[in-house]
Design a protein around this nucleic acid. Structure first.
Lengths: 177, 177
DNA sequence: CTTACTGTACCGGCTGGACGGTCTTGTCAA
DNA sequence: TTGACAAGACCGTCCAGCCGGTACAGTAAG
């Protein structure tokens, strides 16, 4: 029934993220992903020969999406710092009530090393921000606070109210200068 | 070989945390925990009738340990705020290179609801801090930055150097007032 | 135009193994 | 004797990975 013109890879990746978010990270099985993506298990394995490759694909697409979004924001208003762009981007990401990256937990359970590229990316981003910021203390506070915001969103922990998050973002932007 | 009076429960809990940390959160099986704790599978199931109960035990002991440590610190120097105590406690916790709570990933994979008590605890802590702090903006930044520090430690992400972490902590303490 | 070949994309059943949980039997200390 | 385990066999379930098909698409010879 060869579907006309669908990029199966992206469909599968999106389906995997959906399954992890909705059924829980522990329910991210190949069959669940295949069924969700409207693809047979064989078709899934054709695109991703192993579960590890699927996880890797998830990480890579996550990272490239993030980098693209960050670059776009940083380029759009070149008078503002990368740090500000990062703050705003993260705030927008965390606006969405449901965590979009629950699959990360599945990846960690599979093998903690899957997160290595993400760590490397963060390290690189941090170095980039250091080069642009004069006050290291402020940068540290901002960077870690964003990290905290992202982690809370990831853990689906709604400790902060809407207003509080807005206040947080504005405080961070002020600190960032 | 019945050992005299060793509290098996705690031994098992500690073993579970060790297994998750060393073999990865995905390798936290009952057999692995039992073997690590020097206990038979039957013995483990005697103490924790089900895996869910084991996870629950992990969460509860984590929370009670944390609360105890926080209370001790806050009481030791009653001239300092709870926020300062929380900052210092978290800094000390993150000093240890290896994350001590990888089991959390296992718990999430098993069932995300296991984290509910932890979320509730954090919410409660946040409310307590709000009552004590006059500047909500500063509190938010501090609270989230600590969250970020803890999450980085949890994910075993060593983006910050030793010096940077110290600078961060002193910056936070300054913001906390 | 047709037939035959080839490669791509995908289907779906199968299996071997791991895991959680149960149950039975044995053992030792209080 | 009884409570707190030890030891491990056993079962049902689930799942990743493999494999043998299948339905096209493109190409190219005849």
């Amino acid at each position: 029934m060869r579907l006309p013109r669908a990029n199966s890879r992206e469909k599968i990746l999106a389906a995997a993220a959906d399954v992890a978010r909705e059924a829980g990270p522990g329910s991210l099985s190949l069959e669940a992903v295949a069924s969700r993506a409207g693809v047979s298990k064989g078709g899934l394995l054709y695109n991703f020969p192993t579960k590890a490759k699927l996880m890797q694909g998830l990480v890579e697409s996550y990272l490239s999406d993030f980098q693209k979004a960050l670059e776009e924001r940083a380029a759009a208003a070149d008078h503002e710092s990368v740090l500000s762009a990062y703050i705003k981007l993260s705030a927008d990401d965390c606006e969405r009530p449901k965590p979009s990256a629950s699959w990360m937990f599945s990846a960690i359970a599979e093998d903690p090393d899957f997160l290595t590229p993400i760590k490397a990316f963060k390290h690189q981003l941090f170095e980039r921000l250091k080069a642009e910021t004069e006050d290291l203390g402020s940068l540290l506070v901002c960077f870690l606070a964003i990290e905290g915001m992202r982690s809370m969103n990831l853990f689906d922990s709604d400790v902060l109210s809407e207003d509080e998050r807005k206040l947080l973002v504005s405080s961070l932007l002020k600190i960032a200068g």
